[in-house]
């Protein structure tokens, strides 16, 4: 039962978020390419640096952080509403009376699924963002295909990829844990459920940003 529930959550978080993550990542990469080109334009900096900057900014910061902020809104609010709804409709009481450890049955699969799936989504976001930058800039002549490919291949630090995955795992845990907490302890009716759902998003976002700063300080100093 626990494994089946974990698989269901992985499907909901992963497959259910593919389109929104891909869409945001594409535009994130596209905007970065255009703006970095604009800022570096006219300076004595090789144009392949655009690709290099897009890649590293994406990997170190934007792919994990933006993706998880978006997931906190989409997945986090959904988790809070789902568990909160179960609390209000006495499903959690029913499970408790059956002897089910509800925190383990309802919360753990969500946290586990989030910790496993969010890094995959972040990887996808990074790839799509880099491709998005290419699509936005090469056909419009901001730089050539060769320059961009050269840029994304130079100065690659595997440590940066490690940082991305650390962030993805930590953010995945944060958004699931906070959202489940908000839903699990909801009291009252539909207004309180709405507030819990909103609180899940807001608190997850704040916690993700604080964790982002702490990880940056710890892993780059």
């Amino acid at each position: 039962m626990y494994w089946r529930e974990t698989m269901r959550q992985m499907n909901d978080i992963g497959i259910g978020s593919l389109i929104i993550v891909a869409l945001i990542s594409t535009f994130m990469g596209a905007v970065m390419a255009v703006q970095i080109s604009y800022q570096l334009g006219g300076q004595f900096i090789p144009r392949y640096y655009v690709g290099y900057l897009v890649r590293d900014i994406t990997i170190i910061e934007l792919a994990p952080t933006i993706t998880c902020l978006v997931l906190a809104g989409k997945v986090g609010s959904n988790m809070a509403a789902e568990i909160g709804g179960m609390r209000q409709k006495e499903h959690i009481d029913a499970m408790e009376i059956m002897g089910v450890n509800t925190s383990a049955f309802l919360v753990m699969p969500k946290i586990l699924a989030s910790v496993l799936v969010v890094p995959i989504l972040v990887s996808l976001a990074a790839i799509v963002s880099i491709v998005g930058a290419y699509i936005a800039a090469v056909p419009t002549g901001l730089f050539t295909s060769a320059e961009y490919v050269q840029g994304i291949r130079v100065f690659l630090e595997p440590w940066n990829v490690f940082i991305m995955y650390v962030k993805a795992v930590v953010f995945g845990f944060i958004l699931a844990a906070i959202s489940c907490y908000q839903g699990y302890f909801v009291q009252g009716g539909s207004i309180e459920l709405g507030k819990a759902s909103t609180a899940a998003v807001v608190m997850s976002n704040i916690a993700i940003l604080i964790a982002d700063y702490l990880i940056a300080v710890l892993l780059t100093s």
């Binding site: 409709k89 006495e90 499903h91 009481d93 029913a94 408790e96 009376i97 059956m98 002897g99 450890n101």
Partner: peptide
């Protein structure tokens, strides 16, 4: 938990799990 496994409860709102079929609810 051991005692509760000997307990059945019918709730006012039934508390049937929406995402499960009747068979899955009873089998749970």
């Amino acid at each position: 938990r051991d005692i509760r496994m000997q307990v059945g409860m019918l709730f006012q709102g039934t508390a049937l799990f929406d995402s499960m079929t009747v068979e899955e609810n009873i089998r749970f």
